[in-house]
Design a protein around this nucleic acid. Sequence first.
DNA 1: GTCTATAGCAGGATAGAC
DNA 2: GTCTATCCTGCTATAGAC
Lengths: 217, 217
Amino acid sequence: MAQKSKNEIPKERLLDAAEALFAQKGYHAVTVRELTTAAQCNLAAVNYHFGNKKNLYVEVFRSRWVPRAQRLQESFRQYLAGQDPSSLGAVVRALAQAFLEGPLSDEERQRHAQLMTREMSQPTVAFDLVANQVMRPFIKELADRFRPFMPKELPEERLVLNIMSIIFMVIHFNFARAAVSQITGRKYNPPFKARLVEHIVQFSLKGVGMSEKEEYR
Amino acid sequence: MAQKSKNEIPKERLLDAAEALFAQKGYHAVTVRELTTAAQCNLAAVNYHFGNKKNLYVEVFRSRWVPRAQRLQESFRQYLAGQDPSSLGAVVRALAQAFLEGPLSDEERQRHAQLMTREMSQPTVAFDLVANQVMRPFIKELADRFRPFMPKELPEERLVLNIMSIIFMVIHFNFARAAVSQITGRKYNPPFKARLVEHIVQFSLKGVGMSEKEEYR
DNA sequence: GTCTATAGCAGGATAGAC
DNA sequence: GTCTATCCTGCTATAGAC
């Protein structure tokens, strides 16, 4: 059910439309008229439910983006649990899979990445949510999962830089699809995504200092 | 001279102001009034010189962004020429240095990265310029410089993916400064930037399959 | 709770004086 | 080539009917 978000209550339809439109065009490029038209409700609905356009934007992050980010993280844990033996390669692969092939539809995943990317390069009021409720804890979790595989003397900062490099790569292959397709001449279909996952795993594993073979301990 | 771009002709002042403002806030968030005020010229100047706001945006890329990208590439070649022996590490280091520490001021570099990033995630009419006049030839040049160091049997696609991964990392550490600072707790001062260059070099070298030591041939 | 109608204002673009 | 004044469109926000 829920074909085009037509059957829910207006407030929910607004949030759905807002997430899609803000992700697609950015905050300023979206008008309240567009939002209310897309959500099939009245022009006044944004103000009635959220006070103003900006509050709606923040609410999109609070009620849609953050929970989805948590679902993504949960998906990562499930990919990871499904893989044995537990190795660093498994961690990176689970990460790439969750982001590139995980539980989200292609459209949803693209939306998600674009909302995040905008906040990372142009922080707004929603940046705190993104950084403190999602990025920071997730990087911490990844650091904890990486640490057993890393040399004991590796400084915490280098570990964090390694993790950020990997996450950036994943994010970038996700959100810069136009550029990647333009350069490689390939569409983001399942074979190419699987190709990218493998590339990310191989590049990252070696990047942190181990090949696929020597990662086991 | 040229303190605040006050001494040039109005059309040039407009282009300067436009590049700074579009990079900082994005196309839609910038108003013609803002532009003309910042450029200290009249409201009508945008229309007089460029026809409309959109043409001005494209002209920023044509007359400012593309030449600067070419300067950056030139800077990369000079960093590279200054390093001997010629090794893959030198290529990557020159790349990271050109982007993170190169000839551009911090502000200029940030502007540059943000304009590019916007076009990569949200292609507009300027995307063709970015992709075909800058990205594609530069990736080709890098591929040519990498190839001698790579295994002969390495498929072209893997080489391109490796290069994109490295460029993405560089770009990302540049444009997601807010996020990086937030997570690492460090400001983008020279020591931290030098730190990032080293990280990128090490991670990339290993990522493509060689350590700093075994890279010579 | 949702809609219609509209106030009040900011945006891009233009015409015409200088 | 540059400026002033202004048009028109389209936005946010609100008041009040239903």
